[in-house]
Amino acid sequence: MQRICLFPGTFDPITLGHTDIIDRALELFDEVVVGIGVNATKIPMFPVEQRQAWIRDIYKNQPKVKALTYEGLTIKCCQTIGARYILRGIRSFTDFEYEKAIAEVNRMMDPSIETYFLNSSPNVGTLASTLVRDVIRNSGDASRLLPAAVWQSVKKP
């Protein structure tokens, strides 16, 4: 049986923190599906199509990485795509507490789907999309926060 994991998030935009988790997960799973969650109550900075295109561009030479969008419960998305694992990145103790609560609810809904936590690498451990969006919004240099493909498309001349 294939080890498929879903790495859910908004990826608005995808950062070097996200790619750190994805890259390290490639050795653990046969397929890493980056699931862009669409939340009707949130207004993203970048359209979902752009976020999906970035992921596909970054991983164009890595067939183990797929990108999709979904609405609703993450656990339902896992069931739909046949993922038995959910992957989450942890930057801090606060992240862990929040993610642990979500993992416990997901496990109650479907005990066959397991959540795996990966600690962020120290060099990207403080990156959050919220901070990155603020840098971009204020015309700051986000080149050390974003994959090159993303930075090239968002930087202002």
Rank of each mutant, 00 (worst) to 15 (best):
G125I: 09
I90P: 04
E27Q: 13
T19Q: 04
R51E: 06
L145P: 03
E49D: 15
S121I: 05
K60N: 11
T130M: 09
W151I: 07
R3A: 08
K76N: 15
S139Q: 14
Y116C: 06
K66W: 08
K60P: 02
S92F: 02
I36F: 02
A103E: 06
V38A: 01
I43T: 15
C78L: 07
F93M: 11
Y70T: 07
V105M: 15
V154C: 06
I81V: 14
I75F: 08
G37H: 03
K100D: 12
F93N: 09
A25M: 03
P147I: 09
C77I: 08
E99I: 05
G35A: 09
T10F: 08
G37I: 07
N106H: 10
D134Q: 14
T10R: 11
K155Y: 10
I81C: 07
L68E: 11
L73M: 12
T15I: 03
Y59H: 04
L127W: 07
Q52F: 10
E49L: 10
T69H: 08
I21F: 04
R56P: 03
Y98R: 08
S92V: 00
W151V: 06
D30L: 00
L87T: 04
I81Y: 02
M108F: 10
I4E: 03
C77Q: 15
I4M: 04
L16C: 08
P157E: 12
K100L: 15
Q2K: 14
R51A: 05
D57G: 10
N123S: 15
G35R: 01
F96N: 04
L146G: 04
D12C: 10
T94A: 15
A103Q: 02
I55V: 13
R91D: 00
P13V: 06
T115D: 00
L118M: 11
N123Q: 14
F7Y: 15
C77E: 14
R3G: 01
I75N: 01
K66R: 14
F93L: 12
L16A: 02
L87H: 02
K60I: 12
Y85V: 04
I90C: 06
L127D: 05
D23Q: 15
G72E: 03
I36Y: 00
M109F: 13
G82M: 00
R3W: 01
A25R: 05
V34W: 05
L118G: 01
I86L: 13
K155H: 13
S92W: 02
S139K: 15
P122N: 13
S112F: 03
E97A: 13
G125Y: 02
K66Q: 12
P147W: 09
L145R: 01
S121C: 07
L26M: 02
C5N: 02
Y85G: 06
A83F: 01
L145N: 01
D23W: 05
A53N: 11
L146M: 05
A101T: 14
D134K: 13
Q50D: 09
I102W: 01
A40S: 15
K100N: 13
L68T: 12
N123Y: 10
S153W: 01
A67Y: 06
D30Y: 01
I102F: 08
G9Y: 03
V105F: 12
F29T: 04
R56L: 13
S112D: 11
L127S: 07
D57Q: 14
Y59L: 00
A128L: 09
P8K: 00
T130E: 10
W151D: 08
C78K: 08
G125V: 07
A103V: 07
A25H: 04
I90M: 11
P157F: 06
